[in-house]
Design a protein around this nucleic acid. Sequence first.
DNA 1: CGGAATCTGTTGCATTTGTAATAGTTGGTT
DNA 2: AACCAACTATTACAAATGCAACAGATTCCG
Lengths: 149, 149
Amino acid sequence: METERFDLQDFLPYLLNQAAEASSLEFQRFYKNRYGMLRTEWRVLFHLGLYGQLTASEIGQRTRVHKTKISRAVHRLTERRFVTRRRDESDRRVEHLALTRQGQAAYADLRAVAERYDAALLDALDPAEAELLRRVLRKLTEARPGGFT
Amino acid sequence: METERFDLQDFLPYLLNQAAEASSLEFQRFYKNRYGMLRTEWRVLFHLGLYGQLTASEIGQRTRVHKTKISRAVHRLTERRFVTRRRDESDRRVEHLALTRQGQAAYADLRAVAERYDAALLDALDPAEAELLRRVLRKLTEARPGGFT
DNA sequence: CGGAATCTGTTGCATTTGTAATAGTTGGTT
DNA sequence: AACCAACTATTACAAATGCAACAGATTCCG
């Protein structure tokens, strides 16, 4: 059926997706089971935990996640008292988001899990590989290949 | 807000997801715009194109995609005459799937795009990096880290 | 044989997502 | 001031997905 040398197993977007899904799956169980969170909610939680007060659109820029997904994630997180919203008085379109005490507790808990999980993943790699991997992944995240048609 | 050294930008599942999404996005436009396909449909098409006749569950195993997603993707692909189904006579639970002439044409077209797209992505990397990246991604796809709790 | 367990694949229903339209706010221009 | 383009965030509706239940076919074993 196949005459030439193309292989799906070498196609970078496919490989990346497979690795991403595999490596997300087990970690997902934690935020899902312990806190009933979805992926975007987990990301919002972590962004607020790491960077402190942010607006929805700032989170959207950093994560490259669509604003409607952010909006719904924030809605659910406030509903469950993980996040508070505070309207900006000088620009009333904007809301500043921050973690509640409960949100900080969930963040601390999940962050500890994330650190252990990351360490477990990296166990399969040697340190030089790991560093190169991170560098290359960042490069690919930035890169917008053009003119290949 | 942050006292320790954890960074989301170093967390492997996050990095992998960002890179995977970024690198899939532009390629997605092709199978979506030209053939109205979804991601799973594209994957099924490529598996059949590359490996010839397969059953739904074989595709599920190779892609690690859930059987209901495969089932619906196959349904749509047959509806649009990209794929044919043939019941196995010795085990009537099984259906053998294969590309129609039209399916093969779509496959050939998209495969050419994939090759060029892959090459464009790899342009950002040097060959040694690329080879290591593929190797590491395969390793991470296999690895099921346990006992990190 | 006969019944239970297992396998392939599909369907129904609730949940999640994508897309486009919308409300409300601000800043710029005349 | 009055308009209008740009911006933040939400909502509505259709589409896609996850999960559990299901139908049909086969195998296992008493």
